[in-house]
C-alpha cells in the first residue's frame, strides 16, 4: 500500500488486549486478553456465540474504539502512539468497515452513501460517483442507485453497506456479519467479491455465524467469552468445531436450516481447506 512495510511484519498484532465496560460492581470484561497476529493477505473468519465480543474486537481493530489494556500494533506501530488525525487517515486509506447494523447515512441516497468514503480521500465528485456506480453494479444494485436507505430491503441495505466498505479498495476489510440478511446465493456473490479482494493481496477479517462461509477463509478463529477459543493457525489449539457449535446451541437460539446444512461442509473444509473444496461448495 502507500506505506512500505516490511512484508514479514504482521498487519495486526494484538497482545493481551482487554476491553471492559462499566465501573465498580457493574464492570464486566468483554475482551479478556486477546492475543492475535494477522499477516498481510490473510482471510480470517471469526465465529462465536452472540455477545462474546466479536463486534467489540472489530471496532478496536478498525480504530473506532480503544482498548483498556494490552497492545495493538498496526503495521508494526502501536496505535496508541498515533494521533486521532492519524487514526482518521488510516480509516480513510486502509480500512473498509461493514457494520453489523449497516449504518447507512439516512439523509443520503444509495450512490452517495457508497461514494462517501472516497470523499474523504479527496476524489472528485464525478470520479466518486463513477466508482460507486461500478461498485453497486457488482452487487446487482444498479437500479437502486437513487433510492434512499429507507426504501431498501434488509438484504439490499446490507449489500449497499458492503459496496461502501469496498469502494475505496481497502487493504484491510473488517466485515461484521456481511451476509447476515442474505440468502445463500446473494451471500456467495458477496463472498466471491471478498475473495477477489483477498486474492489481490488484501487482508480480510470477517465475523460470521454461517459455518459454510468459512470455506472462503484461510483461517478460522472462534471466540468465547472475550477470549480466542480456537484458531486453525495455532497448532496448540486444534479445532474442535463440534464443541463450539454445541456451546452456541446451548446458550443461543436454534441455528437455521442453512446453518445446519452448512455445518457438515464447514467441518470438511476446515480440515482440508483446499481450493478444490471451495469450488465444490460454490456449485
Amino acid at each position: 500500500m502507500n506505506n512500505a512495510v516490511d512484508p514479514t511484519t504482521p498487519v495486526i498484532a494484538l497482545h493481551g488486549l482487554t476491553k471492559r465496560y462499566g465501573i465498580g460492581d457493574a464492570e464486566h470484561t468483554v475482551l479478556d486478553g486477546v492475543d492475535l497476529t494477522i499477516k498481510k493477505g490473510e482471510f480470517i473468519a471469526i465465529m462465536g456465540p452472540s455477545g462474546c465480543g466479536k463486534t467489540t474486537l472489530l471496532n478496536i481493530l478498525g480504530l473506532l474504539d480503544r482498548s483498556n489494556g494490552g497492545d495493538y500494533k498496526l503495521n508494526g506501530k502501536s496505535v496508541d502512539s498515533l494521533s486521532s488525525a492519524a487514526h482518521a487517515r488510516i480509516r480513510s486509506d486502509q480500512v473498509g468497515f461493514v457494520f453489523q447494523n449497516f449504518n447507512l447515512v439516512p439523509r443520503l441516497n444509495v450512490i452517495e452513501n457508497v461514494a462517501l468514503p472516497l470523499t474523504y480521500r479527496g476524489v472528485r465528485k464525478t470520479k466518486r460517483l463513477q466508482a460507486a456506480s461500478k461498485m453497486l453494479a457488482t452487487f446487482h444494485l444498479s437500479e437502486r442507485e437513487y433510492y434512499m436507505p429507507w426504501q431498501l430491503s434488509g438484504g439490499q441495505t446490507q449489500r449497499v453497506a458492503i459496496a461502501r466498505a469496498l469502494v475505496n479498495d481497502p487493504s484491510i476489510v473488517l466485515a461484521d456479519e456481511p451476509t447476515g440478511n442474505l440468502d445463500s446465493r446473494s451471500s456467495h456473490v458477496i463472498m466471491e467479491e471478498l475473495s477477489d479482494i483477498h486474492k489481490r493481496g488484501n487482508t480480510i477479517i470477517m465475523v460470521t455465524h454461517n459455518p459454510s462461509l468459512t470455506t472462503y477463509a484461510s483461517r478460522v478463529i472462534t471466540m468465547l467469552d472475550g477470549r480466542i477459543d480456537t484458531d486453525t493457525k495455532d497448532p496448540r489449539a486444534p479445532i474442535n468445531q463440534i464443541d463450539t457449535t454445541k456451546r452456541r446451541l446451548d446458550s443461543h437460539s436454534e441455528p437455521t436450516k442453512t446453518e445446519e446444512k452448512a455445518k457438515k461442509v464447514s467441518k470438511k473444509s476446515t480440515k482440508t481447506k483446499s481450493k478444490s473444496t471451495r469450488k465444490g461448495t460454490k456449485k
Binding site: G62, A85, A88, R91, N103, R164
Partner: peptide
C-alpha cells in the same frame, strides 16, 4: 451520521 462519517475516514477537521 458523524460517527458513520468518522468511521469512513473523516477527520476532526472534515
Amino acid at each position: 451520521e458523524i460517527g458513520i462519517r468518522k468511521a469512513l475516514g473523516a477527520s476532526n477537521g472534515h
